[in-house]
Design a protein around this nucleic acid. Structure first.
Lengths: 205, 205
DNA sequence: GTCTATAGACGGATAGAC
DNA sequence: GTCTATCCGTCTATAGAC
């Protein structure tokens, strides 16, 4: 085995700058539409220098995807089966909406990947993701069995939370165009709307 | 003025084949990720022959977008202010969901365009689209004033209908991966879920 | 670690024969 | 209308000097 190289401060800094720049470009253009030149100049590096840190465009992209998938699913993992059902679901909606507000590039990166057929994370989708959603669905069904929330299709409930919250990141341009110049931040209204929507839908009786 | 050329049957057929192939490729790869070669071979033509019908890649793309925008908004235009409020909204949801089922490529084409900053339809979004949504919002507010539906933020209601229905086209791969191999058609369940969701949310009292 | 220079493949678009 | 051949630009990636 080779000795691990000492990682200098400048290495860490450049690697981070590259991944940040790559997130900018890939999330806006998709994998095929992005170019290494755009990433390099956005990171303040020359193209060969960037390729000194990552062996290929593909390697940058998969490094990004791999790091992101886990953090992206954390809010769902945080859902507590022992908590108050409606409060737990509303908290999940809010966390997801906050991620759309604070990490829109990450949301668009995943959206691009899925729309293009998820060629690089198809395995994760039908593995990790599917298992996690199935577990969550069991919890939701149990809550409905106990009469603590109204009965809903649990898988489609999860889909609806994803689509509603991610919409404000992925379709941000459209949301702002429709709301007009007067609205500088659509998120407070979105949060109130989603809270109302899910409360009315899930309150028993 | 030049005389309009007679349009032969083969011209109409090739033009249609090109647009159909372009829809395949652009919806899957986005504008930058698509190549003229892919479109040409998918249409059964050589690259120079394709460029005999359209002057450029850009021209094919804008021709597609222009033709699609109108039909895409037709379901919203069909919403009748004189009809029963809940029935009108549920009918709109259903028409949009049917479009996701029957025209997923069109949905993905728009999704790609918006995610990438809508460089070619920004004007339409803050013009035609915004006016149409504003008119619809007034109708929804009026229905709430009259107590015929529960009060909701009308703009975000429209956003939620878009995001929930288009999700089943744009994120089709993810939906099917999560539901598993047993589910061949997610749409019947989706329709039932959305009908329940909006009925509970909009029923007054 | 970072650069200039460039290889080699592929992109959009055109010329011109048929 | 359709083809082969090709121009020219840009792409990813590498070689090699410093």
């Amino acid at each position: 085995m080779a000795q691990p190289r000492p990682v200098t401060r400048i290495q860490r800094k450049n690697r981070a700058a590259i991944l940040d720049a790559a997130l900018d470009v890939f999330s806006l253009k998709g994998f095929d539409g992005a170019t290494v030149d755009q990433i390099a100049s956005s990171a303040g590096l020359s193209k060969p220098n960037l390729l000194y840190y990552f062996p290929s465009k593909e390697a940058i992209y998969t490094a990004l995807l791999g790091e992101l998938l886990d953090t992206w699913l954390d809010p769902l993992r945080a859902l507590d089966p022992g908590g108050d059902p409606l409060a737990e679901i509303l908290a999940y909606v809010q966390r997801k909406l906050e991620m759309s507000r604070d990490f829109p590039r990450e949301s668009r990166l995943f959206a691009n990947e899925i729309i293009q057929g998820a060629p690089r994370i198809a395995g994760e989708l039908s593995g990790t993701l599917r298992d996690l959603v199935d577990d969550t669905a069991k919890v939701i069904d149990l809550w409905a069995d106990e009469g603590r929330i109204a009965r809903v299709n649990p898988h489609h409930l999860v889909f609806s939370i994803w689509s509603l919250t991610q919409h404000y990141a992925d379709f941000d341009v459209q949301v702002r165009a429709v709301l007009g110049e007067g609205v500088t931040d659509p998120f407070p209204e979105a949060e109130a709307y989603l809270r109302t929507m899910f409360t009315r839908m899930l309150t028993p009786g």
